[in-house]
Each structure stands twice: as structure tokens, then as C-alpha cells.
Design a protein around this nucleic acid. Structure first.
Length: 483
RNA sequence: GUCUCAUUAGCUCAGUUGGUUAGAGCAACGGACUGUUAAUCCGUAGGUCCAAGGUUCAAGUCCUUGAUGGGACGCCA
């Protein structure tokens, strides 16, 4: 019995003149003879040469695009150009037929929009196979990065009772009957009769729980699904996405920036080292896609050049106040080219402003820090007043990437109990609901910092895909929860 | 949620100022060829022109409403 080998292993070890067995799916069948076989282990296909004169024609007829087959024979040096080795098949077995008249995919270019509507089949295309192998490697690289640095992977709950985090609209979790829920005397839904005896939601962030872990384990991170019920319809938002949230005791804002920047550079470097084949597929796809764009809208770097550039160059770090100055004096602002003119200090930056800073002014990733307290979350550490800064700021940081915008959002946390509680009152956040969170500040509080990284946004950047719905297997967004 | 563009064959798209029988490339199918690599050559089949209403002698084409999809913006990761 010949052991089955994966295509990736065959191409790596090239066991010439031995009998090998492969199993996979037909990607092409030319000339009744040349079968391109892919088993998912690599983007490269194995050429299987079928002896059509000595193979049952009933079998030959069933070798169709998409069919699952087994092939066995001798691995030889390729007699043709285009590949080093090929399998001279003596046995072909069909596991699963694939009727070309019914199969939605075709051996030709298909648009991402079409494939999105057939998301259950799109793994079978070169592009999506490459995207999902890369997604896996990036997830692995993130775990390795933190493991190598002594972090503890903390699993924070998916169902939470807190609705005070303020990160966005939440999906409610309940087992109460929707048509006739129990009501209190005042007529409100009586959640004390619900499964958890209180109102619960899907988590919008594991940060607050991660902070609890960091207060004893020192360095923790979360990596799990996160849910936002915002009605966001963009190429960079999902209702269900995966987020990585490190939280580190005794780190300040500078440490936090270093950690985020090192992590991003590490995982991108990891992809460059371990996913060259898949990156090549995606790079070629991008070049092909950009051919239809006018010259001035094409990127001046290829995908891998862009990734190398990020790995080799330090991110630019500047404060919100400095960014406002640059934007105020920028050519587009003076010429009235911004849809939202930069008027003064204190308002949030629009995405056109972020894009200008990253893509035009600095032309590299940018870390913006020390935002106005007004526009940021309650738990961010309040800065000391500083000359030249018009209002109170917090030790926040956002990392902006070209083409993606905000990929990381984080801060040094407010560890001072009094200041934190005062801020919660100002922002009308009920203290009693977060008493467990405030306990961290009451018992052995310490400076600490953390951030959230949107995993799909990272995958977007590394794969060069442009719609976030194409880097998660089964995307959830307003009006869509298919599959 | 707002704005905007689109919807014609399995896919990607043409379709003129409203006018006879709606076209192409690719894919599929049949055949030829048999060392191909986006194979090639010959042939065949394939249409509720998104839906409903309206204008008109006449609507794929114009108008209204809706559905679906793309993009931009806002919210953010």
C-alpha cells in the first residue's frame, strides 16, 4: 500500500523514480493528458500525466474541473516545460464527480463579487486558498510572537453582561420569547427571568477582562471573535471579526507603541518568510487588478515590496496636536480639497485626513498619540497638561496603515482610581456595573497598557485584498449572515 | 444610516437618437489534435434584458417604486 503524499511535500522533496500516491482536486485537464492537481497543501499544482491510451475512457470522461481524485504512479522529471517534476500516472480513481454544467466555478477568472456570493466554494480558487493559508500563518505568527515573549493567552468571555464598555452597538443574547417576553411592573422586559437572570450581549471587546488578567499574570493577550451591531457598510468593517488584545502590566504608552510596532513587523516578516508562494499569487492578482485602473491610481510598490518596506522602516510617531498642525498647513487643506476642512484642535480626524498623513505626507505607517480626552474612551490615562496643547489629552495611540486606516487602537490605561471614577461620572458610565473593573484600581493598581488589533485588517494588508469580506471565511455584515 | 454607480447568456461585458430576428469573449458541450501550461483548431447549444408599475404606435434603452450588488462617507478594530 503506497502512502499518500501531500503535493507540498512532493514538490519539496522530489522523490524521483519512486511510486507516489496523491489525492486532490482537478484544477485543469488539458489535451486529455495533463492534469493539474491541487490538494490545498500549497498553491502550486502537481502535474499528473494520464496515459490516455491505456486508461478507461469512462474514467477520462470524469476528469473534470473540480472533481476529487486519487492518482498513483511514478514521479519523474518533467518531460515538458513549466514544472520540474510530474507524476506519470498508472492509476486514476474518481472520488467525487464535478458536473461542469452545474458547478458554479469555472476554470477562468471570476470576480471577487461573484465569488463572495458563493463563499462556500470560493476556497477552491487560487486567490482564496492563498488568502486563507496566509490568514492561518498570520494567526500562528501572532501566537508565536506572544509565546516567545512570555505572554499568557487569556480566553475572555464571548457573552458579557457589561454594557458600559462603549465600544459600539451590541447584539443581545437572550432565551426569552421574543413575541411575549415577561415584563416588570413598569412594563419593561424582565431580564431577571432570562437565562443569566440579567441582560446579556455578545462581547465588543475583551479588554476589560484582559486587564483583570494582566493584574496578576503580567502579560496577557486575547485572540477571539468580537461582535459589533453597528450598521457599518464599508470595506473595512464586519459585524463579527477577530481581535487580538494584549494587555501588559507596568507598560506605559511608549512600551505599548513598541510592542504593537514590533508585533506588526514580526508577523509581516513571518508571512514574507513562510508564505512566499501564496504572496506571489496575491501579488500577481493585484497587478492584474490594477491594470484596469488609471496609471495614477496604481500603487508604486508591489505587494511584497510594500510588506518589506513596513518591516524595514520604523513607523512615524507623532501626537494628535502635531498631526493637526501638519494637516492645517497641508496643500489639500489650503486648497479646500478636503471634504472636511481641518479647522481646529479637538475634533476627530476624518479618514481622508488619516489617509493624507499615511499615504501622502509620511508614506509609511503612522502612530498617532495623545488624542483629546473628549473623543476617546473613559479608561484611557489622562495626560498632564502640556504647553502648546490646547486641551486635556489621554495616552491613546492609533496605528494607521496605508490603504487600511486604523489597524490598531490602544492606550495606557488610567490606573488612578479617583481619576478613573471622575471620568466615568463625566461620561455617565454607571460605576456599580463596573465595580469588578474598578477593583483592579482599588487593590494593587499599577500602570499598564494595551491595544486592540483588528485581525482581518491585518490580513487585508498582508494579502493586498481590498474588501474585508474577502479575508474572513463567512463574513457577517448588515443584511448578511449566509452560510 | 447618507450619497453614488450598476443589474442583458454559466461568467465578464457590448448594445447608437426609443425602431425589424439582442451580440462578443471566456466557460460548457461535440469533434480534431496529442508534451500541454490562459493549449490550439472546427462546430453546437445557451436569454423571464433584476422585479412591478407607467409613458409611447413601439421600451433592453425613458420615468416611478422596490430588490440585490459595488464604491464612497459616518461609527470603529
Amino acid at each position: 500500500m503506497t502512502k499518500r503524499l501531500k503535493v507540498a511535500e512532493i514538490l519539496r522533496t522530489e522523490p524521483l523514480n519512486t511510486t507516489v500516491q496523491v489525492k486532490g482536486w482537478v484544477k485543469a485537464f488539458r489535451n486529455n493528458q495533463f492534469l493539474a492537481l491541487n490538494d490545498g497543501s500549497t498553491s502550486t499544482n502537481l502535474q499528473v500525466v494520464v496515459d490516455f491510451e491505456n486508461t478507461d475512457s469512462a474514467i477520462i470522461d470524469r476528469i473534470k474541473f473540480g472533481a476529487a481524485i486519487r492518482a498513483q504512479g511514478t514521479l519523474i522529471e518533467s518531460q515538458g516545460k513549466g514544472q520540474k517534476v510530474e507524476l506519470k500516472a498508472t492509476e486514476i480513481e474518481i472520488y467525487g464527480d464535478c458536473n461542469p454544467e452545474e458547478f458554479p466555478l469555472q476554470p477562468k477568472k471570476q470576480t471577487l463579487e461573484f465569488l463572495r456570493e458563493h463563499a462556500h466554494l470560493r476556497f477552491r480558487t487560487n486567490t482564496f486558498a492563498a488568502v486563507f493559508r496566509l490568514r492561518h500563518k498570520l494567526a500562528f505568527a501572532i501566537h508565536k510572537f506572544f509565546e516567545d515573549r512570555g505572554f499568557v493567552y487569556l480566553h475572555t468571555p464571548v457573552i458579557t453582561a457589561s454594557d458600559a464598555e462603549g465600544a459600539g452597538e451590541m447584539f443581545r443574547v437572550t432565551t426569552l420569547p421574543m413575541d411575549n417576553p415577561p415584563r416588570t411592573e413598569s412594563g419593561e422586559v424582565d431580564f431577571s427571568q432570562d437565562f443569566f437572570k440579567r441582560s446579556t450581549n455578545l462581547t465588543v471587546s475583551g479588554q476589560l477582562e484582559a486587564e483583570l488578567g494582566a493584574m496578576a499574570l503580567g502579560e496577557v493577550y486575547t485572540f477571539g471573535p468580537t461582535f459589533r451591531a453597528e450598521n457599518s457598510n464599508t470595506t473595512r468593517h464586519l459585524a463579527e471579526f477577530w481581535m487580538i488584545e494584549p494587555e501588559v502590566a507596568f507598560n506605559d504608552l511608549q512600551d505599548n507603541m513598541d510592542l504593537a510596532e514590533n508585533m506588526l513587523r514580526y508577523v509581516i516578516q513571518f508571512a514574507l518568510e513562510h508564505c512566499a508562494d501564496d504572496l506571489k499569487i496575491l501579488e500577481d492578482r493585484l497587478i492584474e487588478e490594477e491594470k484596469s485602473k488609471p496609471q495614477d491610481q496604481r500603487s508604486d510598490m508591489s505587494l511584497t515590496e510594500k510588506l518589506r518596506f513596513v518591516v524595514e522602516n520604523e513607523f512615524v510617531r507623532l501626537t494628535y496636536t502635531e498631526a493637526i498642525d501638519i494637516l492645517k498647513n497641508s496643500t489639500p487643506n489650503k486648497k479646500g480639497k478636503f471634504q472636511y476642512p481641518v479647522e481646529g484642535w479637538g475634533t476627530d480626524l476624518q479618514s481622508e485626513h488619516e489617509r493624507y498623513l499615511v499615504e501622502k505626507h509620511f508614506k509609511k505607517p503612522v502612530i498617532l498619540t495623545n488624542y483629546p480626552a473628549e473623543i476617546k474612551a473613559f479608561y484611557m490615562r489622562q495626560d498632564e497638561p502640556k504647553e502648546g496643547v490646547p486641551g486635556p489629552t489621554v495616552s491613546a495611540m492609533d496605528i494607521l496603515f496605508p490603504g487600511i486606516g486604523e489597524i490598531v487602537g490602544g492606550s495606557q490605561r488610567e490606573e488612578r482610581y479617583d481619576k478613573l471614577v471622575r471620568r466615568m461620572h463625566e461620561m455617565h458610565i454607571p460605576e456599580e456595573e463596573l465595580s469588578w473593573y474598578l477593583d483592579t484600581r482599588r487593590f494593587g493598581t499599577c500602570p499598564h497598557a494595551g491595544f486592540g488589533l483588528g485581525f482581518e485588517r491585518l490580513v487585508l494588508f498582508v494579502t493586498g485584498m481590498t474588501n474585508i469580506r474577502d479575508v474572513i471565511a463567512f463574513p457577517r455584515y448588515p443584511g448578511s449572515a449566509e452560510f
